[in-house]
């Protein structure tokens, strides 16, 4: 019988700017077998989600934690980002072209196949899924 493997990696970091680089490095390393285009898009989507988690989802600053769970299953990669933030309503439409904020969620939606926002026991969870 064929055996299938589902590699899972988790990274639990303090909600600091340094964490952003740590997480991006993790995504970059774990997606080295993907095409350049898929790797770039995954990096962009996760980068925006994690920046939001640190900036908006960590009301206690470095005392808060951000948890990243990366899972590879068959032809898809799923990355879930957990934070300690309050409930929020993700924007449904991209902002006007000359508007400075609110573009992160739009980028996530353009770069991966599915973006879901859920409430977790500790805050918010963003689930990004990309077929590769």
């Amino acid at each position: 019988m064929a055996q299938t493997e589902t590699p899972i990696l988790a990274l639990d970091v303090t909600a600091t700017p340094e964490a952003l680089q740590q997480i991006r490095a993790l995504i970059y390393e774990t997606s080295e077998d993907l095409s350049d285009a898929a790797r770039t898009d995954l990096l962009l989507a996760v980068g925006e989600a994690v920046a939001n988690a640190v900036r908006h989802g960590s009301p206690h600053g470095p005392r808060d934690r951000v948890l990243i769970v990366w899972r590879r299953s068959g032809s898809s990669v799923t990355v879930t980002i957990y934070d300690n933030g309050r409930p929020f309503q993700p924007p449904l439409a991209p902002p006007p072209i000359d508007h400075g904020s609110g573009r992160g969620v739009f980028i996530m939606r353009r770069c991966v196949d599915s973006v879901r926002f859920l409430r977790s026991s500790t805050g918010n969870a963003v689930i990004l899924e990309k077929r590769v």
Partner: peptide
Amino acid sequence: HSVPERLIRLTGW
């Protein structure tokens, strides 16, 4: 095919 190029094209900027 870099991140900056992709990001700019995605935003339409």
